[in-house]
Design a protein around this nucleic acid. Structure first.
Lengths: 197, 197
DNA sequence: GGTTGAAATGTTAGCCACTAACATTTACCG
DNA sequence: CGGTAAATGTTAGTGGCTAACATTTCAACC
């Protein structure tokens, strides 16, 4: 989900063939432009031309402009961690416990790069919307793990949505503070979601 | 927020001058078309022409296509209700308590009309994103009320985001079940957010 | 080393949401 | 009935995105 969302794009663009390089170049030019003049006021044509490439080529590497900032999740870890929590717990507590466990198993993100992208997202309403749209898949996985079989899926849906939204809020918050570790922010968010002060 | 979001558009289109009528007509034609062929595959030009009007006129009544389904909140009630909760509570619990109190003071929505719109939203990813984008203003109000002055706003942000997302999930869920009262679904969602089963 | 085949890129044309500037009609009020 | 403002129309354009088809580039193979 969220954090994973963000650094995925950096990870899987293994520099190798021409393809990987063009993609990385587009990404770099785009982030520079976004930081200079904002996401909305930056045009895909501008990005493409800055990378010495055609607009069409841009869309061959990124299905949409927002994909430069918001990436797809990789969620099997989360699913497993949530499933491993005792079924006796209430859905919200169970989701939180699962995510706490999952967080320990995820690689520590390349903070600087992540922060750069999340900062842009935090400053751009349409991108924040894109993030929640992007969380839909992870949310579904969470729901699948949380719903007691044969029972009302309502509570599971509510808990899944709440936890992901809370974590996303924490991530956006983190991107705008300096000198705070992402791990601490996430941990605090999970505390809050458990009803602690 | 959410529910209020949705029936607002129906409420404030008081049939009166030509303006109100054109707006209502556009809305009705649009919802019909959305239900018949889906939101994405319905074009603004189609809607306008079904209402016997120009595309330009459409945008004079609705700032964007999504505004046909997702509306702006009216939040002073929420702000007051949350502020009225004792500051000794943890942020999540305080937000939930405030919303529970606010819910009692809100007018019971015209269920059929609301359900129609929420159903469309539930079936359309981009509209679900639009809903959360639309919740941003309400979320900010919640945060303002939840943050202890001089303290870290992080927990307040997390709690506000989680509660709104949870309620939105409940609303989407409700739209797809028949014979369940919105009030019950909301109440159950607030329970879940308080950590109950 | 030249040939070939596939991957990467380019070109053109077009759809759709949305905006701006300006012209026209409609309805109501004095 | 005339005048005025709101409501609508017209035209032209921008930006994200897609489709269909042509072209280049690179690399493996002969």
């Amino acid at each position: 989900m969220l954090a994973t969302n963000i650094y995925r794009g950096v990870v899987d663009s293994e520099p190798g063939g021409r393809r990987g390089r063009t993609r990385a170049l587009l990404l770099e030019c785009a982030l520079d432009l976004f930081e200079q003049q904002g996401y909305e006021r930056t045009t895909v044509a501008q990005i493409a031309s800055a990378a010495g490439v055609t607009e069409m080529t841009f869309f061959r590497h990124f299905a949409a402009k927002e994909r430069l900032v918001v990436e797809d999740p990789y969620d099997p870890v989360i699913a497993g961690a949530v499933a491993a929590q005792p079924r006796t717990m209430a859905p919200l507590a169970r989701a939180v416990a699962g995510l706490r466990a999952a967080w320990g198993r995820l690689p520590e993100p390349e903070s600087a790069a992540v922060r750069r992208r999340v900062r842009i997202a935090a400053a751009t309403p349409s991108l924040r919307a894109a993030i929640s749209a992007n969380n839909a898949a992870t949310e579904q996985i969470l729901v699948d793990q949380l719903v007691a079989d044969g029972a009302d899926p309502g509570p599971a849906r509510v808990a899944a949505a709440a936890v992901l939204a809370g974590l996303t809020a924490a991530l956006l918050d983190w991107s705008q503070r300096d000198g705070v570790a992402l791990t601490d922010v996430v941990s605090a968010a999970l505390d809050t979601l458990e009803g602690r002060r």
